[in-house]
């Protein structure tokens, strides 16, 4: 068994050891991720920062057990990942609410699949619907909701399944700028209230600094590797116009081709 305790005594819930990912065979073989090591501590908010097509979603799919790494190993809570695991809650980039289910039915899906009784799972779903600020919308169908509200439901649905780890794959990528900033504040508020280990993928530097305890920056071209890790020591709530925020922003921008 790998050593799961970091230098600070907090246990690592996710450990990626020398993982890489290829697609295709022979001449068509394409390396998407190359030898990556990454550890995420309990209740840490880690942001994976990289441009589009940099293998971020592939990394998440492997952690979630939807795909297997070509080399290396991934451990969640010390156990090697071999398939999907309800310990991990996944919020996808696109809205993935089931259009034929109401908000309530979407959120209670996880507990329902686990065989939790109706009363108990309704209570739990209601708690998280309230937590994401959607009380009153329990019976609405997804097509009646705005983009921001849909992602709130997605977050509530992930939480209702009792995950220890939340993987959020560019959850706000399709929202307009204003809603996005609001949702960034919201996700922190929710996380403060219901602490979980969070991995959050984004291509937006401001979003990364605003949210993360640590920022893992990926190489801008394939195959993707880890380029640098930043520890963000700024107190929350962070201010986009704070001097320290801007200095860090400048430092990260200097390292990347993301800046416009």
């Amino acid at each position: 068994m790998e050593n799961r305790i970091g230098n600070d005594g907090i246990k690592n819930v996710i450990e990626c050891k020398g993982i890489s990912k290829y697609f295709g065979e022979g001449a068509n073989k394409k390396e998407v991720l190359s030898t990556m090591d990454l550890s995420v501590k309990e209740n840490e908010f880690v942001v994976i920062l990289g441009p589009g097509q940099s293998g971020k979603s592939t990394l998440f799919r492997m952690i979630a057990g939807l795909e297997k790494p070509s080399t290396g190993h991934i451990y969640v809570n010390g156990k090697e990942v071999t398939g999907p695991n309800p310990v991990i809650g996944y919020v996808f980039q696109r809205y993935t609410l089931f259009p034929w289910k109401t908000v309530m039915e979407n959120v209670e899906m996880g507990p329902k699949l686990k065989g939790v009784g109706k009363k108990e799972r309704r209570e739990k779903a209601q708690y998280f619907i309230n937590l994401v600020g959607l009380n009153g919308f329990e019976d609405a169908y997804p097509h009646q909701l705005s983009g921001g509200m849909k992602q709130r439901v997605g977050i509530a649905r992930a939480y209702a399944n009792d995950p220890e780890i939340m993987l959020l794959d560019e959850p706000f990528g399709q929202l307009d700028a204003q809603t996005r900033i609001l949702m960034e504040q919201e996700i922190l508020r929710i996380w403060e209230k219901e602490k979980r280990t969070v991995c959050f993928v984004t291509n937006n530097i401001d979003e990364a600094i605003f949210l993360g305890d640590r920022i893992v920056m990926l190489e801008g071209k394939l195959p993707s590797k880890m380029k640098k890790i930043y520890n963000v020591d700024l107190p929350r709530p962070r201010d986009f116009t704070d001097l320290a925020f801007l200095e860090l922003r400048e430092e990260i921008t200097g390292e990347t081709e993301l800046a416009l």
């Binding site: 057990g65 939807l66 309800p86 089931f98 699949l113 399944n161």
Partner: peptide, 28 residues
């Protein structure tokens, strides 16, 4: 939608549950 199927898998849904709860309603 394949994302729906992946989604359900991350929630630990079995093959039969995916068929019953996701494929059938989406095929209606």
């Amino acid at each position: 939608n394949p994302v729906f199927i992946k989604m359900a898998k991350t929630y630990g849904a079995t093959d039969w549950e995916i068929f019953k709860d996701i494929c059938i309603p989406s095929a209606l």
